[in-house]
Amino acid sequence: MPIKIIEGLPVRTKLQQEQVYTIEASRAISQDIRPLKILILNLMPLKETTELQLLRLLGNSPLQIDVEFLHMSTHKSRNTPTSHLQKFYKTYNEVKDDYFDGMIVTGAPVEKLNFEQVGYIDELKNITDWAQTHVFSRFYICWGAQFALNHYYNIEKLTLSEKLFGVFDYQNIKPEHPYIRGFDDIYQVPQSRHTKINYEVLNDIPELEVLTFNKNFGPDIITSKNQRDLFIFGHLEYDRETLKKEYDRDAENGVDTAVPFNYYPDDNPESNPKFQWRSHGHLLFNNWLNETYQNTLYDLRKLDELK
């Protein structure tokens, strides 16, 4: 099934070139299908890049997906034109009376700030609290995951001695779990962050379950026991060259950044990066969509009755 998008979304051309099936709203309404409604809260500065990465993964599903994008009304984007946000995004006030099967909260380049120093933190708390009764399944990525774990479980964010930057091995410790069904025993995931959570406290939080782990860096994928919240600190949605662009940008700006670990053949930045995580990215997103589809309510208005 195709992914339903707003008419004119610029990344549709690229998706079509990659054989990712899309359908515009005017065509979708003629089909007698209950699509899976997904809301994407895009906190990244380069919003079109993130749109493409996420839609590429969501579109590789047999389900029809109805996607809406959300942005923060209390933050002015410096990297995305206002016209793009006005045409393709909504604000909280525009969706607060609606219900969704799933919501994705992306990362954001604010991890060096304390949570309360983030300018839109109150709006973000309001949105994620609203999602507890208006969204069946929530999927938090990178800083979004750190924020949610802090907001709901008081898990602290800790600063690393040096940036975790590259592609790292993580162990699948719960292979029977539906969110990582099909994962290898060891999988690789891009990481790009200066912080980690205090994962030592996870044993004291029975509502959470660690699915994948690295002995040096802690967990990568965590879920709530009721499977309605999924947290990932890595970036399985990244393209082949995402880390390269970040490394090149830092080099151009005079930032002393190490070559991304296990990314370039022979650690040579002049060579083509290895794309080692793509299949697991598709697996994770497909598993999340499938579990959401299998367990969500047909009448989403009854979500606030769930405990």
Rank of each mutant, 00 (worst) to 15 (best):
T296G: 06
F233T: 00
N93A: 10
D204T: 14
Q16I: 10
Y152W: 15
K245N: 14
K302L: 15
T133Y: 11
L164C: 03
Y187L: 08
V20M: 07
F69T: 07
I3E: 06
L43N: 11
Q19C: 13
K76F: 07
L306A: 03
I38Q: 00
H134Y: 05
K37R: 13
Y152V: 08
I23Y: 05
L9A: 02
I221M: 03
T223D: 00
N126R: 14
I173L: 07
M72C: 07
E209Q: 10
S30Y: 06
S279F: 11
D267G: 12
V67I: 07
R78T: 15
P175E: 02
A131Y: 04
P2K: 13
L46K: 14
K4E: 09
Y152K: 13
K87W: 06
E24I: 05
I127F: 03
D229G: 09
A28W: 02
L211H: 01
F168T: 01
D266A: 10
R56L: 11
P81C: 08
E270W: 10
D66Q: 13
L55S: 04
R249G: 11
R12P: 06
R181H: 14
L70Q: 02
E51L: 08
P206V: 12
D229I: 11
L284G: 03
D220G: 00
F147N: 01
L124T: 05
H177C: 03
N272V: 14
R56Y: 10
Y89R: 11
L63E: 07
I5D: 03
V11K: 00
G59E: 05
H280K: 08
F115D: 00
D220R: 00
R12K: 15
N126A: 12
N42T: 09
G281E: 02
K14E: 15
E291P: 00
P175M: 00
L303F: 11
Q191H: 12
E237Q: 06
S30I: 09
L306V: 08
R78N: 15
V110S: 01
L39H: 00
W143P: 03
D250N: 09
K215H: 10
S137A: 13
I104L: 04
E246M: 10
I104E: 04
V110N: 00
W143C: 05
D97S: 15
N172V: 07
L9W: 02
I3F: 06
L158K: 11
N262C: 11
